[in-house]
Design a protein around this nucleic acid. Structure first.
Length: 555
RNA sequence: GCCCCCGUAGCUCAGGUGGAUAGAGCAGCAGUUUCCUAAACUGCGUGCCGGGUGUUCGAGUCACCCCGGGGGCACCA
């Protein structure tokens, strides 16, 4: 089944051809705020006015006059400066309910991203500490994006990149070594830039029971590698477990040390950049000419690839990884970063461009910070002092569904205020329950019907034409918007649109449920309403599925 | 100083690729249950869309400037 707007666009194209007017590239359909303006409206006539050298209203009249008869459309009218307003045919709408029910779980899936191989990296917290609240936001957004893109036919690989090398890894290794020594009663102090959090003390205790070796006789380098690897392995395992509890599983867990450095990729990419004449030596370091790539790259200074002490920078490692691994297997790379990394984006974009990847194939989404509110007051967090709210604590307090839904009710690039009072409240104040309750209510109706011995015949035998209430038609039209919604959310990489749309759908269903009884004596009407409710339930379930939120059968 | 993001109702935020008379939730007030779950429903909203200039038939949406808030500007990651 084509999306409704595709069918309407075909109609406009046919009308244009018949009227001898210029062809159009895209045809935008919007849902008017005012019901008098129809179910869909297009500004095509206005955008065509220049090319056709005619006034918009005249073009609109021609389109309407030549519009082929479609079962979907009851009538069209020209309004305002040249809008074409489309009014759907009620009989077609009720019949379309059948298509929704037949499509079932696949209703809303599309092919708008088909054929694209997408590499989507998110969370990727340093393995130097436990996951915190902002990681939970990134996980919700990233996972939902993956679901959205897959629903549109993209081949998505989700990835968690572990930074198990470099300075932060060293700081972790030294901190952990010190904690283990302390645990074993040896005198040791935490290194200056070490990690003071208590979790390393816990980990040291674990280490003592499981292994215990301090490796006092081993060379420093070896000792430090040993402790670093051990700590990272445990830390990553803990992160993976929490994410799994949250419903987020990654296709790939990659390692900076194993997959990039040990594979020799940084040196390779330096050679490749040098061969393209994009590097130079200065003061003993090797630099990348990111500024030479012009305005498009947006970077304002050249960047160091290899320090004067011979070590490659994080940037060089990242460029290598993206170029050989990510782009080696995908044609679109999307990274979710925190706001502290946004200054890093231009140089990466410049590097990707320099290595021949088309503009736009490398995208970075900035996931903004989360402020946690408890009793109306912000919960103060400071990583340096080891004060932060763990993702684990958040999930314990508000639950997985409420947390995910709340994170997805904001644009990813907008700072989010997470009110614990609202998120933990099990009432209608909490949007997630409002939506889930619509689903549960629908399941309850079905259960109730079954208990009363009401047999629901096959769909083909139900007379959907019995649905005639304005609220019923409005609900059906709403359901018909769903495929367009999903396509738009996937294109814009904006899962929050789904969350908002579902709240609005639930906001239509609850009043309907209150004023019109489903189970009743008029069997023909009852069966049609059962079908309508089944379709609503299906779409709510599908939509929540895109957000990674469950659709409970009872609450 | 330079760059990025943000500024919409008392609060938190939506506003789809520029469209017709700018929305939701929360908070507040007043109501609704012989009836499929009251985790629900009904009613109550006068917003210089931060300000200005411009582009356009049309600007909350685009461009530029200003004000205010946040963030970023390493041979760190």
């Amino acid at each position: 089944m084509d999306d409704l707007t595709d069918r309407l666009t075909e109609g406009v194209r046919a009308a244009l051809a018949k009227a001898g007017l210029p062809e159009l590239e895209t045809c935008a359909w919007e849902i008017p705020r005012q019901a008098e303006h129809g179910d869909y409206a297009s500004n095509t006539a206005m955008t065509l006015a220049r090319a056709a050298r005619r006034p918009p209203r005249q073009i609109a009249d021609l389109i309407v006059a030549n519009f082929p008869p479609l079962a979907e459309v009851e009538r069209l009218e020209v309004a305002g400066p040249g809008f074409i307003n489309v009014f759907l045919a009620p009989a077609w709408c009720t019949g379309a309910l059948r298509d929704i029910l037949v499509a079932g779980a696949s209703y809303g899936r599309g092919r708008s991203e088909a054929g694209r191989r997408v590499r989507l990296e998110f969370v990727s917290a340093n393995p130097t500490g436990p996951l915190v609240i902002v990681n939970a936001r990134a996980a919700a957004v990233g996972d939902s994006l993956a679901r959205l893109l897959r629903a549109q036919g993209a081949e998505v690989t989700t990835e968690y990149y572990v930074n198990d090398a470099g300075n932060q890894f060293e700081a972790l290794a030294r901190s952990f070594e010190a904690r283990v020594a302390q645990e074993l009663g040896e005198p040791a102090t935490l290194p200056e830039n070490g990690y003071p959090g208590e979790y390393l003390i816990d980990l040291a205790q674990q280490y003592r029971y499981e292994s215990g070796a301090l490796l006092a006789d081993a060379p420093a380098r070896e000792r430090f590698e040993h402790f670093g690897r051990w700590a990272v392995a445990r830390m990553v395992e803990g992160q993976r477990r929490i994410l799994r509890d949250y419903g987020v599983e990654f296709d790939v867990w990659s390692s900076e040390q194993r997959d990039v450095r040990a594979a020799g990729l940084p040196e390779r990419v330096l050679a490749e950049l040098a061969a393209r004449g994009l590097t130079y030596e200065q003061e003993g370091a090797l630099w990348f000419r990111s500024t030479q790539l012009g305005e498009a790259s947006g970077d304002d200074k050249d960047r160091v690839l290899r320090r004067s002490n011979g070590e490659v920078t994080y940037f060089a490692v990242d460029v290598a990884y993206h170029h050989y691994v990510k782009f080696g297997r995908s044609d679109r790379v999307i990274n979710l970063f925190g706001p502290d990394h946004h200054g890093y984006v231009p140089r990466m974009r410049a590097a990707m461009q320099a290595l021949g990847h088309p503009p736009g194939s490398f995208e970075v989404l900035i996931v903004q910070l989360v402020t946690l509110l408890r009793d109306g007051q912000p919960v103060r967090m400071s990583k340096r002092r080891g004060e932060f709210v763990l993702m684990e604590e958040l999930l314990e307090e508000v639950g997985r569904d409420a947390a995910r839904f709340t994170f997805l009710t904001r644009r990813h690039d907008s700072p989010l205020e997470f009110d614990l009072a609202v998120a933990t409240r099990q009432t209608a104040d909490n949007p997630v329950y409002y939506v889930q309750y619509a689903h549960a209510r629908i399941c309850s109706i079905r259960k109730q019907a079954a208990e009363q011995g009401i047999a629901v015949p096959p769909l083909a035998e139900i007379d959907l034409g019995a649905l005639g209430e304005p609220e019923e038609l409005a609900l059906i039209k709403r359901l018909l918007q769903y495929p367009d919604l999903v396509r738009g959310a996937a294109r814009a990489l904006e899962p929050h649109r789904v969350a908002y749309w579902l709240q609005e759908l639930a906001g239509m269903f609850h009043p309907y449920y209150k004023t019109h009884r489903v189970i009743q004596d008029d069997r023909r009407l009852m069966l049609a309403r059962i079908a309508l409710c089944a379709a609503i339930g299906q779409v709510v379930r599908n939509g929540l599925g895109l957000l990674g939120v469950s659709a409970p059968e009872s609450m």
